[in-house]
């Protein structure tokens, strides 16, 4: 009986000794896993980022640079400025650009990859930089050049949301018509929201 107690006690002592070690090592494992996880997430995020920069961003920068270079160097920019600057520096002009881009037949054509919006954005940006367009018009201009956003993508976008064919049938015209109302509305909203933007300069 006594031996069994002794055995028990020694057994306990042995297990408690090993459990301290076990606890320590499990804590170490947990810390190691957590640190590894954090590092892994950050590293993967960095990998994704560099991938996006090389695949999407730098190619577009190259494309934009060629256009901007040509437009500025040939003096085409000044010609464009005479045409675009008066349009882009008044609410009426911006609304005209916006309504044009939101016409239900044109908007899906202007949509793909937002290429048109990006090129027009770059052109307007250079004009703002050159002082032809007042900087506070940047905000309404951002909405004026972009009422067609996603208009090329409606069926795909709806399919991603697992929509029925009947929904797509009604949804495509619904979005296109909605843009005719909400596009100009967005420009007006942005126009009023731009009060006080860069006005001190």
């Amino acid at each position: 009986m006594s031996t069994s107690v002794e055995e028990k006690s020694t057994g306990n002592a042995g297990s408690s000794g090993s459990s301290v070690l076990g606890k320590a090592s499990s804590v170490l494992v947990r810390v190691g896993k957590a640190v590894g996880g954090v590092v892994g997430v950050l590293y993967q995020a960095g990998r994704d980022t560099i991938d996006t920069v090389i695949r999407n961003i730098i190619p577009f920068m190259a494309f934009v640079s060629v256009i901007v270079g040509i437009v500025n160097y040939t003096g085409l920019g000044n010609v464009l400025a005479n045409f675009v600057a008066p349009l882009a520096s008044s609410l009426i002009g911006l609304l005209a650009i916006c309504i044009f881009c939101a016409i239900p037949i044109l908007s899906p054509v202007l949509g793909p990859g937002a290429v048109i919006a990006q090129v027009v954005g770059v052109l307007l940006g250079t004009r703002i930089g050159a002082g032809d367009i007042p900087p506070q018009y940047a905000l309404p201009a951002l909405f004026a050049i972009n009422p067609q956003v996603g208009c090329d993508f409606i069926p795909v976008g709806l399919a991603l949301g697992e929509a029925e064919p009947e929904t797509v049938e009604a949804g495509v015209p619904a979005v296109l018509f909605s843009r005719l109302i909400t596009g100009p509305l967005a420009v007006v909203l942005a126009y009023f929201a731009s009060f006080g933007l860069y006005s001190s300069t």
Binding site: N56, I57, F60, V64, A114, A117, Q118, V119, V120, G121, V122, L123, L124, G125, T126, R127, I128, G129, A130, I133, P135, A138, A141, L142, I145, N146, Y198
Partner: peptide, 11 residues
């Protein structure tokens, strides 16, 4: 990106 950065570059 350039929908925004194009115009922002001017600013």
């Amino acid at each position: 990106l350039f929908v925004y950065y194009g115009i922002a570059a001017g600013i």
